[in-house]
Amino acid sequence: MIKIGVLALQGAVREHVHALEASDVQVIVVKKVEQLEALDGLVFPGGESTTMRRLINLYGFYEPLKDFAKRGKPVFGTCAGAILMAKELVGQAEPHIAVMDMKVERNAFGRQRESFEALLKVKGIGDDVHGVFIRAPIIKEVGEGVEVIAEFNGEIVAAKQGPLLACSYHPELTDDHRMHQYFVEMVRNCVVHT
Rank of each mutant, 00 (worst) to 15 (best):
L120Y: 04
V6T: 00
P163K: 06
G41N: 14
D67Y: 12
G91E: 11
M1Q: 01
D175T: 09
K32D: 15
R106D: 03
H177C: 07
D175V: 03
Q112R: 01
G11L: 06
H180R: 07
P95A: 08
D40M: 13
G143F: 02
K3W: 00
V146E: 00
V99P: 05
H193Q: 15
K73E: 12
V132D: 04
L9S: 01
G72Y: 13
L164M: 07
V99G: 07
M179I: 14
A38E: 15
R178W: 12
E117G: 03
V184C: 11
V43G: 09
N153P: 02
A136D: 03
L120Q: 03
G47I: 13
E172T: 09
L173R: 08
P45H: 10
F68A: 13
P74Q: 11
I56K: 14
R71G: 12
C190V: 15
T51Y: 11
H170D: 05
V187S: 13
H96V: 03
A12Y: 00
E172P: 05
L119N: 05
I138D: 00
V129L: 03
K87C: 06
G41L: 11
A150S: 15
I149H: 06
L119W: 01
H180V: 04
M100I: 04
P171V: 09
V43I: 15
Y182R: 13
R54T: 12
C79Q: 11
A8V: 00
A93F: 06
V30S: 08
E114Q: 12
Q35F: 10
G143I: 02
R54D: 08
Y169M: 01
L20M: 07
D101Y: 02
C167V: 05
V148I: 15
V132P: 09
D176I: 04
F116I: 05
K123C: 02
Q35R: 08
M1W: 00
L164P: 03
E117T: 07
Q92V: 12
Q161D: 11
R188E: 13
F109C: 04
H96W: 09
A136G: 04
A38Y: 07
V187E: 13
L65V: 13
Y169S: 02
L9Q: 00
E117K: 07
S49T: 10
K121N: 12
A80S: 04
A118L: 01
K70G: 09
L119C: 00
K103A: 05
E21H: 12
G131L: 02
F116G: 02
L39S: 13
H170P: 06
M52P: 04
F183Q: 05
Y59F: 15
D40Q: 14
V122E: 04
K87D: 02
I2W: 00
R113N: 01
K87G: 02
A98P: 11
